[in-house]
Write a protein that binds this DNA or RNA. Structure first.
Length: 597
RNA sequence: GCACUCGUAGUUCAACUGGAUAGAAUACCGGAUUUCGGCUCCGGGGGUUGAGGGUUCGAAUCCUUCCGAGUGCACCA
């Protein structure tokens, strides 16, 4: 059992004995003791005044004294104001390492029986992926990994926005101005090529509008009557009727985009278990709306359009079906959500990784699903994240200030390659190994930088700072791991395989050792917390603290110069546990760690 | 206009969900180590937590009023 749990039980019992009071274990909260005081766990005693009928300081003393006398775990205590700081016996910490060394997969919680779906990425096929998508993808992937570590079964999915007027725009522009250009003929990545024609459409559209305005039309009229937009609308109708020529062009161009995106996802190191295509799902939801009408959850207006009234819940009325019977975004999302629970009947939760500008949309969506009587609706979660700003300000595609995902990743790889070569520590690496390392480092830096910030918060992406290899960065942690790996390699060469039966004589630890072991004992708590809060940043912060604390130990305590062989064995086992925690923690962020760098 | 989110060292981020003298990183200044691995470690300065008021033994955190930033309020997706 965990030290923290044992302590809580002791405290509960102490309350029984000392004050004849029932204090449940789950009512007790222990917090880490601040660095400047002795001890590891702190019990805040201010609230107990009523129970003990004494002031907080005396209360703390009584409890501390009792725990020190009656338990093996508490070796000492001190009281500052109403704070009771408890010092734990060193052999308890040794035990923690013994337990971890015995564990097969440290950092993996037992199966929960819960099954969750994580949706992320879901791009528009007209626009190549950019920095904002990177935050989305890394977040979604990481949350999926964190859910797995919490013992849940996970399905990673995305919905691909592959139909609608915007798709017809790029198709039309390609048809008009493309001269048969293909990714092969131009050497462009498929998604970039299609994106270019989307931009081209917009340019031509604006030209036509300007011409019409010159001829005396109002701007609104011009926007509606420009030939190019009329043609695009016609194309959409043809697409819906699956007219062969339009349909095959659609398939061809989408194919290019998927190839392009595929390459980008590969580079990012993210993947999906199942893809949903809007072209398959856009008709879903209509029958649900019909059912909702019958149940009088929704209502019809005079013109025949269908609405839901959410004013009682502090929201607005929301349109679900147009007067002509066609559906809107919300309708599709309702249908898709229900479809997914049909696809995976044991699903208990969906997590949608979507930017915070859609918070209102998801609030409405979940509320509608709840009103329709779906019990899982309340479990659904919008993993909302803030925008990524650049030092120059907001990213705006119109002003060309967008940071392209492919370009950025390439830059990170180049920088890490240059940096690594400069250090000259990788002699003996094959070219393939070296390239893998650059990728591990470059992407690690990028992912860590984007994930260390609380997802809810808007963040600033500074390209200069993100490529740094020291401070609170991915490479710093990767470096710490590589160094421990070096220690373990050396230990093996010298024949010091950690043997847990040797630990028994180790009874006195250095303060830095206790610091590190305390953090190790918190690993699983952090995984739970990250899952509960949907926040990879908790893991990122934790691993950084762990790496830093280990470095402190490393500086202070020598491993191989230690004469006591049991201590030496202990420190190797202890280092191994730290390496494991770093590796596992980083994998929860989708970041690999090298053995050498 | 209405709704939601946010405001913390020069800068980028934390703060265990109401706990101690608000912590890291970065940059700057000073020192240690020169090895198991160089990107390591230690110390220093730097804060009226946007401003005021309230609740509390105790507030960056909760309530309230201002000020400032952002997002949303489509028969677009």
């Amino acid at each position: 059992m965990k030290i923290e749990q044992i302590l809580k039980q002791h405290i509960s019992k102490a309350f029984q004995t000392l004050f004849d009071n029932e204090l449940r274990v789950d009512e007790i909260s222990l917090q880490p003791t601040r660095k400047e005081f002795a001890g590891t766990y702190t019990l805040v005693c201010f609230p107990f005044g009523k129970i003990s009928k004494k002031n907080p300081e005396e209360t703390a003393k009584i409890i501390g004294e009792h725990l020190e006398q009656s338990t093996a775990e508490v070796k000492g205590y001190n009281v500052v104001k109403g704070f009771l700081n408890l010092e734990i016996a060193d052999n308890e910490w040794v035990n923690v390492i013994r337990t971890i060394s015995n564990q097969i997969d440290f950092g993996q919680l037992p199966e929960s029986g819960k099954e969750v779906m994580v949706e992320y990425s879901s791009p528009n096929t007209n626009k190549p992926l950019h920095l904002g998508h990177l935050r989305n993808n890394f977040l979604g992937y990481s949350i999926a990994e964190i859910m797995k570590a919490n013992g849940h079964k996970v399905h990673k999915v995305q919905i691909i926005n592959d139909r609608g007027i915007h798709i017809c725009k790029s198709m039309l522009a390609w048809k008009r101005y493309g001269n048969g250009e293909t990714p092969e003929s131009s050497g462009k990545k498929g998604d970039k090529l299609v994106g270019d024609y989307y931009v081209k459409f917009d340019q031509e559209y604006k030209k036509e509008i300007a011409e019409l305005v010159e001829k005396g039309l109002s701007k609104d009229d011009a926007e509606k009557k420009a030939p190019i937009i009329l043609e695009a609308q016609e194309m959409l109708l043809k697409w819906e009727q699956k007219e062969p020529e339009v349909y095959s062009l659609w398939k061809k161009m989408n194919g290019w985009v998927y190839d392009g995106f595929g390459a980008t996802y590969m580079q990012m190191g993210v993947d999906f278990d199942k893809l949903y295509y809007e072209s398959n799902t856009y008709l879903l939801g209509k029958d649900v709306v019909e059912q909702g009408l019958k149940k009088e959850v929704f209502f019809k207006k005079e013109d025949g359009s269908v609405w839901v009234d959410l004013t009682d819940d502090g929201l607005d009325e929301k349109l679900l079906l147009r007067a002509d019977g066609t559906s809107v975004y919300m309708t599709q999302d309702i249908g898709t959500a229900i479809e997914r629970f049909k696809d995976f009947p044991k699903l208990s939760q969906q997590i949608y990784t979507v930017g915070n500008e859609q918070e209102y949309h998801f609030k409405v969506l979940f509320l509608i699903l709840k009103k329709l009587g779906y019990s899982w609706a309340e479990e659904n979660y919008h993993l909302s994240y803030g925008m990524v700003d650049l030092p120059s300000g907001k990213m705006k595609s119109r002003e060309g200030t967008v940071v392209d995902a492919d370009d950025l990743m390439k830059e990170m790889l180049d920088t890490s390659a240059a940096h690594t070569k400069e250090l000259g520590k990788i002699e003996g690496f094959s070219e393939k190994e070296a390239n893998e390392l650059y990728e591990t480092l470059g992407l690690g830096a990028l992912k860590y930088f984007l994930l260390k910030v609380d997802p809810k918060k808007r963040m600033l992406f500074d390209p200069q700072e993100s490529i740094q290899f020291h401070g609170n960065t991915g490479p710093f942690i990767q470096y710490s791991h590589a160094r421990i790996s070096a220690i373990l390699r050396k230990a093996k060469e010298l024949g010091f395989e950690p043997k847990k039966e040797h630990f028994d004589s180790v009874t006195v630890l250095a303060p830095t050792e206790v610091g590190v072991i305390y953090l190790l004992s918190e690993f699983e708590n952090k995984i739970k917390e990250a899952g509960r809060e949907y926040s990879p940043s908790i893991i990122a912060q934790y691993i950084y603290d762990l790496a830093k604390e280990y470095n402190r130990f490393y500086q202070e305590v020598s491993i191989f110069n230690e004469e006591d062989e049991d201590k030496l064995h202990f420190r190797i086992a202890f280092s191994k546990s730290v390496a494991l925690a770093i590796k596992k923690g980083m994998s929860l962020l989708g970041i690999r760690v090298p053995e050498r760098m």
